[in-house]
Design a protein around this nucleic acid. Structure first.
Lengths: 247, 247
DNA sequence: CGCGCCATAGCATGATAGGGGGGTGTCGGC
DNA sequence: GCCGACACCCCCCTATCATGCTATGGCGCG
């Protein structure tokens, strides 16, 4: 029965869960409640490369998970990609299209169907400084994910992911390194496309100083190069696209 | 009446709304539905400094908004700060505590009460590369935000924020020229932090060819430099953060 | 008062990227 | 059959960046 009360009960139980198995049991119950077969709560990372790190709880067929990991799809799976551009979550059949497809996507989707995974829905789990994540529920081929199920999942997805993170990192409310104001300013001007000497003139400081700020920013993130620095700062929320956009 | 059907109706209407006034009307109806007095959908930015940019729709008292803006609280308001560390949203009385308080927070909260704003709840709106945002609903002093209202807001908050962004930036999504597969590959590897010669080895092509692909990509966007190229490609969706993520 | 953090500034070296040429072959559409 | 888009390859030269090191003054905090 899809009601707010039912969702409330799930959220309360989820907030008290102690380990991954308990969380899996609860998500299985959610599956039964919305009438789907599969659930997957996962960070979008390469689990083979980052063994031990990241959170993942799912009931997908084991060989699908293996196939998925071997191809490092945690980072490039079309559903994961789309979830990174979404705030509210989505039904797969409404947002996974040919237009945004990449070579290889078709293979992934047919392989999923071969493992009895058809339509589904996904709730993104974004938090600045953390890897991307999501909570998905999926049906066997032939049945479509419904808007009501999406709404239901929206009530539960966020708390479920927060619970999973607490289980994986007990007490580790970690926030990545933040940049100082001056470092952010310098980075924003270079990201707009200015060479360092022009940034220096805008900020009315020496270009060596700008260089120094950018260097320190790179050191904080432990990255090499201006492009990775910019990407990390965007990811972590230190700067954002509207800072960079020039109109 | 707090039901999934009611939420569904709101979400459908929100997805069709054409302007900020229409969105405000709908959020006012949501207020009536959950029994609160105030709503506020807002980017967490300094609206005085960034005039014209950013999204904000609210029905707070006008002098409260002025007081808020004058003190540049968009960035440092305790509710906004807490929302930036939350994925699922929260009830103010459960998460706004003395422990995480900063000097000045007490003043903000009493000033809010002076303007008839008591307890409330907030749904964060995170999207990588975008400024932080949130959707809040608040009650007059003496009444407490309820878990059921939080669940209801979870169903509506994300779609409402997405709608607001569409209104503020019509057609910003998926604009401009797209890159070829090869250009995207080269860009992704350089964005990970690889120098061109290493990209060439990964793709098993000459480094001049990599240079060539990157040059053509820059030409398409009409940008100068690898950093602006990366930012444009990220914003346009040609590449995304998980393509670049290292783990 | 010292300690750490920040912003500022300078200098030197080598690696890298950017922008300018030139070219080949394929594929698909007009 | 030609043309445009695409992927591929090669050369050159200069501007820019990354990185190493050192050093100053201001500011807050314990």
């Amino acid at each position: 029965m899809l009601t707010i009360d039912a969702a409330h009960a799930f959220v309360l139980e989820i907030s008290q869960v102690k380990n991954a198995a308990g969380l899996a049991d609860l998500l299985q119950e959610v599956c039964a409640c919305i009438g789907c077969s599969w659930f997957a709560l996962s960070h979008h990372i390469d689990f083979l490369a980052a063994s031990g790190k990241g959170v993942r709880v799912h009931n997908y067929p084991e060989d699908w998970a293996l196939w998925f990991d071997e191809r490092r799809l945690g980072l490039s799976d079309p559903v994961h990609r789309e979830s990174q551009r979404s705030m509210a979550g989505f039904l797969w059949h409404e947002r996974i299209h040919r237009e945004t497809a990449r070579p290889g996507d078709e293979l992934i989707l047919t392989e999923a169907r071969r493992h009895d995974i058809g339509d589904g829905l996904t709730i993104p789990a974004h938090l600045a400084g953390e890897p991307f994540g999501s909570v998905s529920f999926a049906w066997k081929p032939g049945r479509a994910a419904s808007p009501a199920a999406l709404l239901f999942a929206r009530m539960i997805g966020g708390p479920a992911f927060e619970a999973a993170q607490l289980i994986a990192n007990p007490g580790l409310a970690r926030v990545g390194p933040r940049l100082t104001d001056r470092q952010r300013e310098c980075l924003i001007w270079t990201a707009k496309g200015n060479p360092i000497w022009r940034v220096a003139r805008k900020l009315d400081i020496s270009s060596d100083t700008v260089r120094e700020h950018l260097r320190n920013a790179r050191l904080r993130y432990g990255v090499h190069g201006g492009i990775p620095l910019t990407v990390r700062a965007l990811r972590g929320g230190d700067i954002n696209f509207s800072d960079i956009a020039q109109f």
